[in-house]
Amino acid sequence: MEELLQQLTNGLAVGGIYALVALGYTMVYGVLRLINFAHGELFTLGAYLGFTFLTSFAFAGRVGPIAGLGLLALLVMGLVAVTGALLERAAYRPLRDAPRLSAVVSALGASIFLQNALMLVYGARFQVYPDEALPNRAVRLFGAQVPVMRALVVAASAALMAALWLFVHRTRFGTAIRAAAIDRDAARLAGIDVDRVVLAVFLIGPALGGAAGLMVGLTYGQVGFTMGWGYGMKAFTAAILGGIGNVPGAMLGGLLLGVVEALGSAYLSTAWKDAFAFIVLIAVLLVRPTGLLGERIAEKA
């Protein structure tokens, strides 16, 4: 029972990270019908920026651990968001009316470019977060020992998702984003500035992805230039699993995949850990071809 609880919390922690990254895929896809393959690299960028700031400035020492982490997160999210918006300008905007697959290849090129840029800047070897700068105590939660850092990460991912949900469902601009996701042309006719919506999703999605990268750095300590592909692919799977283009679907898909992976590798086989996500995805799509929460058809005919 203890073991199961432990695996469940591990799964939810990883799932929260998948969900944050999946939100970036799903929001961009919703508005532009584009799979942003470079999104995984934005996640990696977040992890590396966190490393840079932590090693360069003694945040925690100056403003205390919690405020320091908050400041760090804001900085990382802001910088990754700006990178995302620049990426959209350079690689995707020129292809908005081109055949859909050419944007996919451009996205793959952007992914290769960013990944190698990170490798050139930070080196090909893993970098390790300085743990002396981080809170390292553990707390007892529901009878299990949980490191403070992990609890903070879970709380932060929950808070970010809640904030995004409120933004998308309770504000005027959020309504505009949802309208553009349902039908971009109709939204334009209804007076919605679609370019602003695109800019917004390319700021919000990367910001969440960058935050997820930072969280992985803070939880596991290690960052490497190829980490974005694994997390990115799982997160993309999560977005499809939940129903691509659907914000609650990405959250549900991410959490579900995290739990499936944790339980699968604990009780079935560690070696097959990376296959579980895809096996679950294929099984779900056979029953629901547009994902768990995907109501509308995937593509306009």
Partner: peptide, 19 residues
């Protein structure tokens, strides 16, 4: 070590120029 960087950039540029 910069060759894949250039390769990624080339993919992007070629698709943008000739979609």
């Amino acid at each position: 070590s910069a060759r894949m960087l250039v390769f990624g950039l080339a993919l992007m540029v070629m698709m943008v120029v000739r979609p």
